[in-house]
């Protein structure tokens, strides 16, 4: 027995949120996804929410594996369809706090249509998008967020597609909360996640994250620590920034902060109000506490 083993260790505060029996996880050394899960666990801890009513829904991909590591009711759905699955869950039981946790390829490429429509309807979903500029699980292909000129396995001569600016997309489509941080900004991430958990409405958090194994290696960006240095050096905190100006160029500045935090009736409120107004006493109401008295 080493001396260290005898020292009583304080329990890790996020351990209760992790399915320890599933560790080691699939993420690479230097990957930012695990960091975001740590932040999310801390946000949950601070939220004092009834965790029995918190549900995490993921799609497919590296970030899609988050649902499987959280000690919560969690669903690992099909590629791109986490949002419509979450929509069904939330509408059928409005008492649930439904978090969608997935990657850039999943949420805004194959799932892009669902993303904009859920924002338009203001579905009460908390959408966390870990954006590492690439499809990690399949080996580092170009995504709709890959910066121009960046190398990927399917843009070996550099990306020539204009990428999405996700905060601008989310705000344009109707999101009521939009923020962006990087995996370097752990305190800000935890704080933003806490805000989302309290916020009613379609909330969107983009987390710029390193992928040293694929994106970083192909673009000669060094290891995970070097990517963190980039996030630290090039991030510009600008709360309330015009999202239109928040696009990200290759290794360029990253505007971070809380960009949008507005109130707008959520889908179920709109539905209940309209039906109650039209049907009056005939309206049997839907589940939950949204029916106006």
């Amino acid at each position: 027995m080493s001396v260290l083993a005898e020292v009583p260790l304080a329990p890790n505060p996020v351990e209760a949120f992790i399915r320890s029996e599933r560790i080691p996880h699939v993420w690479c050394p230097g990957c930012g996804i695990g960091t975001t899960v740590n932040c999310f666990s801390r946000a949950l801890l601070q939220s004092r929410l009834n965790l029995e009513r918190v549900v995490v829904v993921s799609g497919i991909g590296c970030t899609g594996r988050v649902a499987g590591y959280l000690q919560l009711t969690s669903f690992h759905t099909t590629h791109g369809r986490a949002i419509p699955f979450a929509t069904g869950l939330k509408v059928a039981n409005p008492e649930l706090t439904v978090v969608v946790y997935s990657g850039d390829g999943d949420l805004v490429s194959i799932g892009g249509n669902h993303f904009i429509h859920a924002a338009r309807r203001n579905q009460d979903l908390k959408v966390i998008c870990v954006n590492n500029f690439t499809y990690g699980m399949t080996g580092g292909q170009v995504t709709p967020t890959t910066p121009l000129s960046a190398i990927s396995s399917t843009t070996p001569y550099g990306c020539f597609e204009e990428p999405f600016n996700l905060p601008f997309l989310a705000e344009s489509a109707g999101a009521t909360y939009v923020a962006r941080w990087t995996s370097y900004h752990v305190r800000q991430l935890t704080h933003a996640m806490g805000e989302m958990l309290r916020k009613k409405g379609f909330s969107f958090l983009e987390i710029i994250s390193g992928c040293p194994t694929l994106y970083g290696r192909r673009n000669r960006l060094g290891d995970g620590l070097d990517e963190m240095k980039y996030f630290k050096d090039k991030s510009v905190v600008q709360h309330g920034a015009n999202t239109k100006e928040a696009g990200i160029g290759f290794q360029g500045p990253i505007v971070v902060g809380k960009f949008v935090d507005i109130e707008r009736p959520v889908f179920l409120e709109q539905m209940n109000q309209q039906l109650a107004r039209t049907l009056d006493a005939q309206y049997a109401g839907c589940v939950g506490d949204y029916v106006p008295s």
Binding site: T77, R81, P84, A86, T87, G88, L89, K90, L96
Partner: peptide, 9 residues
Amino acid sequence: IAIAGAVWA
């Protein structure tokens, strides 16, 4: 898939 979500709710 929305119906699958509703079923699990």
